[in-house]
Amino acid sequence: MFSPQGPSLRELAIQALSSVERGYDLLAPKFDHTPFRTPESVLGATADALRPLGPFGQGLDVCCGTGAGMWILKTLCQGPVTGVDFSTGMLAQARRAHPDAQWVQADVRALPFAQTFDLAVTFGALGHFLPAERPALFAGVYRALRPGGLFAFPIGAPPPLMSGWYWALLGFDLAMRVRNAVRRPPFVMYYRTCPLHAVRNDLTAAGFTVTTVPLTALGQREDGSPRYRLVLARKARTP
């Protein structure tokens, strides 16, 4: 599906009926050939927006998957770069693509780091966390950063109510809720549970100072607002 190298419908169905961890273990060898991988345009726009804020020391990719975001850290960070994910399969693919990086298998709701990194990024992962789980995720990233460290990630604007994308994403989320109501373990993957205002509130509660910048290279909506913004969550510097 999606390309000759991508997963079949049967493979995707098996993944969706598994747990999140097992599902991504199964999908890992073909993940980079699906639309679920963060597009190069989003990665490039994020790198361009972060470059004037660097250089940084050590970098962390939270929910790194197959390592698509690792090249951003390599270009922006002068020290070692690390990816963390809980999927064995995804980390195996990431190690093959970036053997010079460091890889850690862990639940990112309990990150095993303390004041280690100067820059943390994440791409396309927030939909895998229920709103009640975001505080633990953001608190862990806050602990993992050194004073003055930055947590950055792109976030898309919601599609207009009358667009096909709005109804497609709504339908997907409803289907996932039905699936999780009737089958265990759940597969948490939602597109409409992390609006910018809610994410900003959770980051602020974790201790971050939050700003956003438009990723103008990714275009505008019909009303002139940006299609994507880069969230910049800064940890306070030591007095």
Rank of each mutant, 00 (worst) to 15 (best):
P35N: 12
F31D: 00
L53I: 09
I14W: 12
G59I: 07
G54E: 02
G44H: 12
L27Q: 07
V62R: 01
R51F: 07
P52A: 04
L60M: 06
L53G: 02
F56M: 01
T38M: 10
L17I: 01
T38K: 09
I14R: 12
A16D: 09
G23I: 01
G44M: 08
R51V: 12
S18L: 13
L43N: 08
E21R: 13
P35W: 14
A47I: 01
D25K: 11
S41H: 04
E21F: 00
E40Q: 15
Q58G: 10
L53Y: 04
L53A: 03
G54A: 10
P29Q: 12
V42N: 02
L26D: 11
E40K: 13
V20F: 05
T34G: 06
L43W: 03
A47S: 13
E21C: 03
P29I: 04
Q15V: 15
G23N: 05
F31G: 00
L27E: 09
S41N: 11
F31M: 06
A16I: 02
V62L: 09
F31R: 00
S41C: 01
S19E: 09
L17P: 03
R51W: 06
P35T: 09
R22I: 05
P55D: 09
V62M: 06
A45T: 01
F31Y: 15
L50P: 00
L26R: 15
L17M: 14
D61R: 06
L17V: 02
L50K: 03
G59C: 05
A47F: 00
T38S: 14
L53H: 03
D48A: 15
G57P: 03
Y24E: 07
G54V: 07
Q58A: 14
A16G: 07
R37T: 10
R37P: 10
G59Y: 02
Y24N: 10
V42G: 00
D61L: 04
H33G: 02
F36Q: 12
L27D: 06
A28W: 07
Q15T: 14
L26S: 12
D48H: 11
P55G: 08
Q15L: 15
T38L: 08
D48T: 14
D32W: 05
F56Y: 12
A47E: 15
P55A: 06
D61N: 04
R37W: 13
L50Y: 04
R22C: 01
Q58I: 01
A16E: 12
L26H: 13
V62D: 00
A16C: 08
A16K: 06
P35Y: 12
D48K: 15
G54N: 04
P55V: 10
E40C: 03
A45C: 05
Q15C: 14
D32M: 09
T46S: 13
P39S: 07
I14V: 14
S18A: 15
P52Y: 08
I14N: 03
G44P: 04
T38A: 13
P39Q: 11
T38W: 04
L53W: 01
P29W: 07
F36Y: 14
H33C: 02
F36R: 11
D32T: 11
S19G: 15
T38I: 11
F31I: 05
L43V: 15
A28P: 13
G54Y: 08
P39Y: 09
R51G: 08
E21G: 02
P35H: 13
D25V: 13
A49E: 04
D25G: 06
V42Q: 03
L43Q: 09
V20W: 02
